[in-house]
């Protein structure tokens, strides 16, 4: 089942900035999302920032995948989440996971 996971990573010198073009992180792709995230983070060896602006839906499988990535962060490296959409923010707030992760407030976006 070669589902491709649309994740791209860029380096700004200090941080690995990961952006996903997946619009849903759910029971279909959560495991793969977790695996690719871990691979990117391990390959770059820097603190990571995950930009979630395109993710319009996340269920508890997606949340579980992010918790797993957070727990598996290499020692000393942080995982920060940015640009959560309202549907993603809701899952984090209801489960109090917004207090476990570093979350950057969503920017007022001009560039979409």
């Amino acid at each position: 089942m070669g589902l491709s996971m649309n994740l791209t990573a860029a380096n700004d010198g200090k941080t690995t900035i990961i952006i996903t073009r997946e619009t849903r992180i759910d029971a279909v792709n959560a495991t793969q999302f977790k695996d690719v995230m871990r691979e990117i983070i391990n390959d770059h060896g820097k603190p990571a920032l995950l930009d979630l602006r395109y993710v319009d839906f996340m269920d508890s499988s997606g949340l579980g995948a992010l918790v797993a990535v957070h727990k598996a962060m290499p020692p000393g490296l942080s995982l920060t989440l940015a640009n959560m959409t309202p549907n993603v923010e809701r899952v984090f707030k209801l489960t109090r996971m917004d207090s476990v992760f570093q979350v950057l407030p969503t920017q007022q976006q001009e560039n979409g």
């Binding site: 508890s60 579980g64 995948a65 918790v67 797993a68 727990k71 209801l94 489960t95 109090r96």
Partner: peptide, 16 residues
């Protein structure tokens, strides 16, 4: 569970 060392990756479904 909420302790960072044993943060749960599942069990959120029925809570939600």
């Amino acid at each position: 569970g909420f302790e960072d060392s044993e943060l749960s990756e599942s069990g959120f479904g029925w809570f939600l």
